Simulated assay, not measured.
Amino acid sequence: MRVGVLVGVVSCAVAAGCSTTVSGTASDGGVSRDAGGVAEFRPVLSAVAPVAGSAVPTPPGAVAPPACAEYRDRPSVEAGKACRQDPLLGISDEYRAGVVSAFGCDDRALDGKTDSALPLATCGEDGAESFVLGRAILGGDDIAAATASPDPNGTGWTVQLSFRSSAQTVWSEYTREHVQERVAFTVDGRVVSAPTIQSAITGETTVTGGQGGFTEEEATALADRLGG
């Protein structure tokens, strides 16, 4: 998973005072795209590095839903949803810590089977971080277009996102109200990119791949998955 940034371009060339960076995304009612995958934009409630692809050690005071024990002993989609999408994840630090320690990043039982109306405990695609995400604020059907192109201001490639008008309003308000917070782009319930909001984005959104940018292949694949 690339920890890149989102750059909002307001109807002018990218220049000082004309761009913003973001860290994360959320979605509301993700819809399968032609290229495959359900795209969502979710706020990041917490993030921690797992231990070599296995579950995170349980910290003192952590409390996991009873379904997590069943999930560990007898994995199933139903138990996975009850554990990793417990509604209390959105309000309880103790639950967040307990649930993150209950599964490993090699666990893909819920890939493509998550509920956008509930919080979600998941991992980055590369397993580098375990996340607890809030309910989706935007979904794949809110993306009007996603295209990959070379970064005109640096090295590597970027992905440009255009939202439908109603979704752009939601996105602009969300980024304005959550400056310095992370937001995650997810596809099929796994975090593809989790950058940090620096200021409101009121125009086109550009997702960069961090230092050096995305490769052409990475940018093209991400654009395809997000609806390009």
Rank of each mutant, 00 (worst) to 15 (best):
A117Y: 09
T169F: 06
L120W: 07
T155G: 06
R164Q: 11
D107Q: 12
D107S: 12
R108H: 15
D141M: 08
T122F: 11
R135P: 14
D126E: 06
L161I: 11
A146K: 02
S165V: 12
L120F: 13
A144L: 12
G127R: 09
A146W: 00
G154E: 00
R108W: 15
A148P: 00
R135G: 05
T114V: 15
P150M: 01
L118S: 10
P152G: 00
G156P: 13
D115I: 11
G127K: 10
D126T: 11
G156A: 02
L138M: 09
D126K: 11
S130A: 14
L110N: 08
A144S: 11
D126V: 10
C123P: 12
T155Q: 08
S165A: 14
R135Y: 04
S116A: 15
I137C: 03
R164P: 06
D142V: 04
G127V: 08
G139I: 05
D111T: 15
G134Y: 00
L118K: 08
D106C: 15
W157Q: 00
S165G: 05
D142A: 09
I137F: 08
S149G: 09
G127T: 05
A145I: 03
G140K: 06
R135Q: 11
A128H: 12
S130E: 05
C123E: 03
T147A: 09
A146C: 07
A144R: 12
K113H: 14
W157P: 05
T147V: 13
G124F: 04
K113W: 10
G156M: 07
T155V: 10
S162K: 09
D111M: 14
L133E: 00
V159Y: 01
D126G: 08
F131L: 07
Q168M: 15
A146M: 05
A136E: 10
N153V: 13
I137Y: 02
D107A: 14
A167Q: 04
T114P: 13
W157F: 09
A136H: 06
D142F: 00
Q160V: 14
I137Q: 02
R164I: 08
G134P: 01
R164Y: 04
L161M: 12
D111K: 12
E129T: 14
D111V: 15
D151F: 05
R164M: 10
T122V: 11
E129D: 12
C123G: 08
G140I: 05
P152A: 02
T158F: 08
C123D: 02
G139P: 03
S166R: 10
Q160W: 02
A121R: 05
